[in-house]
Amino acid sequence: MVNAQSGVYLTYDDFENNRLTYATNDPVEDNKIRFNEFIAKPYLILKHKGEKVHVFKDEIYAYKNKKDIVRTWNFTPYYFLEKGPVWIYYRDVYTSQPKGTQRVRKFFYSTYGKGEILLLTVHNLKRSFPNNDLFHIYLDAQFRNDADLAQYDRYANKYKVNDLLEKAGSGITKK
C-alpha cells in the first residue's frame, strides 16, 4: 500500500521503496503500534485487522505510525526527521531534575540509512567526517553548542547541519 497510514518496514530496502508490511490506509481502522519501550520487551505489538501481532524489534528496520516514521536501533525508537548527507532523528528522554523528571528532546544522526545512530554533537560529527576540514571549520563557526545543531534552516528547507555538509562538499549519502 503506497499511501498506507501505518505498518512496518522490515528492511532498509522496504523503507527506500515505501513497502510496508501489516499496512493499512484506513484512518478509521485502529492499527496501533506499541513499541514496549518502558517494559523493555524485545518486540513491538501491532494491532492489524483486529488481531495482535508481535514483531521482534531486531527483525525490522522501522515502522510508520500515521505521520511518524520511527527507526529502531539497538531496541530503541528514533523518530525520523530528515534524509540528507546525514539522516536526522530525535527521541524524547526523561532526565532527573531537582523537582522530579522532565522530558527533553535529544537529536541524533546516522551517516547513511543503515548506519549507526549517534547523538548529534559537534564531536561526533567531526569523528564521522574526519577528513572534511572545511566541515569542521563550518561547525565551529556556525554552532555555539551541541543543542544548536538541531536548528532547521527554513530558507534552505533542511537542517543546518545537512546544509553545511553539502556546502563543505561531502554531500554523499552512503547506502
Rank of each mutant, 00 (worst) to 15 (best):
Y78H: 01
K41R: 15
R91C: 06
E82H: 07
F15P: 08
D68Q: 14
F35L: 08
D68V: 01
I69Y: 02
F80Q: 04
V70M: 04
D13V: 13
I60P: 06
V28C: 03
D92G: 01
D14Y: 06
F38P: 03
K49M: 06
A62M: 11
K66G: 04
W87S: 09
N18P: 04
Y61W: 03
W87Y: 13
I39D: 13
F80I: 09
I69W: 08
A40N: 12
E51F: 12
Y12M: 13
D26T: 06
E51W: 10
E29G: 06
N36I: 12
D26I: 02
Y90K: 10
T76G: 03
N74T: 05
P42L: 08
T21D: 01
N65H: 03
D14Q: 06
W87N: 02
L20D: 04
E37L: 11
L44M: 15
N31Q: 12
Y79E: 02
D68H: 08
F35C: 00
W73E: 02
E16Q: 14
F38M: 07
K47E: 14
Y63L: 15
K41M: 09
K49G: 02
R71P: 03
P85E: 10
R91Y: 00
H54F: 12
L81V: 01
P42M: 12
G84I: 14
V55Q: 11
T21Y: 11
F56E: 13
P85M: 08
E51Q: 15
V53L: 11
A23V: 04
I45D: 07
E59C: 03
V53G: 10
F15W: 15
A23G: 10
Y89V: 11
K47Q: 15
N74G: 00
D58C: 02
N17Q: 10
P77Y: 08
V86I: 15
K52S: 13
T11Y: 04
Y63H: 10
W87L: 14
A62S: 13
K64N: 15
D13C: 00
I60K: 10
Y43M: 04
Y43L: 07
F56D: 15
N25W: 05
V86W: 05
H48N: 13
N17D: 10
E37H: 03
P77F: 07
K47F: 01
Y79T: 11
I45F: 02
V55N: 12
W87T: 13
Y43C: 03
E29F: 00
K57H: 00
P77I: 06
G84L: 12
K83D: 08
Y79V: 05
K52Q: 15
L20I: 01
N74M: 10
I39P: 03
P77H: 10
N25R: 01
E82R: 07
K64A: 14
T21C: 11
